[in-house]
Design a protein around this nucleic acid. Structure first.
Lengths: 159, 159
DNA sequence: GATAGGCTCTACCACCATGGGAAGGTCAAT
DNA sequence: ATTGACCTTCCCATGGTGGTAGAGCCTATC
């Protein structure tokens, strides 16, 4: 009784959908098929699926997992390579966490000062509306914008 | 000199690309056009763009922002509605942060115990390979799977 | 007046991961 | 024979964002 995809999914914790997807993008090798064209999974395949599952649970990106899988299969890997991937990932996690904590802090602070009643006035709204904070993503005032004239007129013919 | 999209982008911190996108999905209203069909932005439009920018910076989803915008425009809003959106968002931020902190903790812990040298053995790999942890996302063992026979044979004719 | 450069417009494609579903095939149990 | 539970491939949607191609428009400069 060969292990077909639903069993592999159950045993690995990776959905059948995702198994096919991972195969299609080359993260997983193409597995054997039965006569009916059903995918079959060996114990080793299941093992690989569990590996991927665990790596996803730890938040590794697909490309990182691709790399980790190749290191896994490499008898002569240097643990330094594995460690570097892990540390890079840890850094990016830390970075994202820091960002989200800043958001959380701001949102919570604002919410604390909102009465939350039937009246309209609300510091949360004020913050959004005023936009006190300096833009961090976009460019501030960029030099030489050359605002001369690049429009026709504003007769405002709106459809 | 009407404010065209690039100026609106500079002044709001929202890229022209995103301004068009937000308009296309109905987050922003359709603005006036010049004779050449160029979008023009009033001070009030810029204000709205800044609102959206700020909300994105705080991590609000597009649908939340849509809601917040409508509350913003509603003179008779209840601050309780605004607060609820903010608190829900704070909760989802907290949830994600918690998840990522768990990942970070696990990855860091493993990395600490990896020598990171030329040798292949590595606790990070061991963790991934063994998959000790119980699956959290997928179903464990689900009842009545009825694994009788749903394959043909495994002669393994591979392509 | 022609041309170059910079801006606009729309309409696509790509990313990352995942889920949903349709349409058709296959198998075992009833 | 029908039912139901699988399988297969293919397409669509999500959320935001970037890129790019092809076309139009405007201004400055030659």
């Amino acid at each position: 009784m060969p292990t077909i995809i639903s069993d592999a999914a159950k045993r690995s914790g990776v959905s059948a959908k995702m198994i096919r997807y991972y195969e299609s993008i080359g993260l997983l090798p193409q597995v054997d098929r039965t006569e009916n064209n059903y995918r079959t999974y060996s114990e080793s395949d299941i093992h690989t699926l569990r590996f991927v599952r665990r790596a996803r649970d730890l938040g590794y990106s697909i490309s990182n997992i691709k790399h980790l899988l190749s290191l896994w299969r490499d008898q002569h890997r240097a643990s330094a390579d594995v460690k570097r991937i892990a540390l890079d990932h840890a850094n990016s996690l830390r970075h994202k966490i820091t960002e989200m904590e800043a958001m959380l802090q701001a949102v919570e602070h604002l919410a604390e000062h909102c009465r939350g009643d039937h009246r309209p006035d609300c510091p949360i709204m004020d913050d959004l509306a005023v936009g006190l904070t300096a833009p961090t993503r976009g460019p501030g005032i960029r030099a030489h914008q050359g605002t001369h004239g690049r429009y026709a007129s504003q007769k405002g013919l709106r459809a």
